[in-house]
Nucleic acid binder design. Sequence first.
DNA 1: TAAAAGCGCGAACAGCGATCGCAGTATCGG
DNA 2: CCGATACTGCGATCGCTGTTCGCGCTTTTA
Lengths: 228, 228
Amino acid sequence: MTVWERPARGARGPAPERSRAEVTAAAVALADESGLAAVTMRRVAGRLGTGPASLYRYVSSRDELIDLMADAMTGEIDLTAPLGGDPVEDLLALASQARALHLSHPWLLDVPPERLRLGPRGLDYLERALTAMAPAALPGHARLETVALLSGLAKLFARTELQAAQTSTERHAAQAGYLARAAAEGTRPLLAAALAESAASGLPEDLQALFERTARRVLAGLLTGDQK
Amino acid sequence: MTVWERPARGARGPAPERSRAEVTAAAVALADESGLAAVTMRRVAGRLGTGPASLYRYVSSRDELIDLMADAMTGEIDLTAPLGGDPVEDLLALASQARALHLSHPWLLDVPPERLRLGPRGLDYLERALTAMAPAALPGHARLETVALLSGLAKLFARTELQAAQTSTERHAAQAGYLARAAAEGTRPLLAAALAESAASGLPEDLQALFERTARRVLAGLLTGDQK
DNA sequence: TAAAAGCGCGAACAGCGATCGCAGTATCGG
DNA sequence: CCGATACTGCGATCGCTGTTCGCGCTTTTA
């Protein structure tokens, strides 16, 4: 049984001293401060002033806690703004919010996407995307795939953006060094050229704008072509 | 210093009893059989008939071992076939291979893509993609982003395909049940419709074909439009 | 009012990645 | 040719992880 259907508390015993929301909030705070790896049962419990074992009254595993965290973040996306009617633009607005969400909570990128982990807020997000897509003539599965693709795109851009932004950790510096040395080696001339050109132009433009332009093109391609 | 530049063995002492390639092969075999989580230092060592501590002579951390594994798999991609000259088709051929690779080694999807982890074979792959893209008129950073996007697309399709294929684990069944119940609830009508339609049509078509069609459209959109 | 169920949580377990230090061995500098 | 040096294999061990068990207590049910 999933967290979403399991009742928050039993009918019999004393009232729980905390709530799932509180536990989730503590975990999210921890992740915002120190990354997803810092979200250990012990640390979350410590922040709540209790022992690790107590958390298992609220959550059946760490994975489930992460599900709660992710769904809580999805809930931060605004689904109330009126739709314009153009599927491309409406979907783009949604995807931009998703990208912004990942930028402000980078640990979301570390949540393994393995088996789909949709909670109620995730489903609302999905429904909203389907609503925006309603005017387009597409088979059902294509609609779902479009949403998945768009989410992937938002994550991808958020990831590259965060990579560029972060002042280099130990590891990152080593990797960059190797990349530079490998490019300068002579083989792989096109890679060297692309890196050089990329470095020369710096961060040439607004990344949000770049994301929007790319997403618009991708969406246009996906929504217009009925077949072929 | 990265694995790729660190010498495989010191100049002084006795010859190592194993090689990086052997260690990597053992780890890959383990991952193929039982998933990435089964790749623990102890288990890899066990398979090699040695102790966990010995592995650290070949690899400085588990993460590094995973880097080796991923790059070894990338090396399985054939980069020797002649290019046709059409960037879209040539890139598509490359991406199809990447997708197939993820299908035959599903644990690749569990490798966290966090900080870029390109080894020599990964760089060769990248160079090949840039070669295929050479005819297109694009700024350097756009070329790199296109490759990243294409890789993400291949992973995305591989993931959904594997999800559909796997006979439900405990967790997967629970999730599916919740999804069905949440859709049947009345709110979220479009989600219900999309799921129903999707279930009705089963797996309607060749997923490879679907991937190719989608990738072609995305690539066409990315490579042709110079600006706007 | 007795039974049943739920709660908080101290203690403990198995498994993990990684480190330390030592005995043995191959190479280098003189 | 011979220390000195640097490297290898690896048993023992550390600190940390997610998770379980069981007990005392509290609340609800019958």
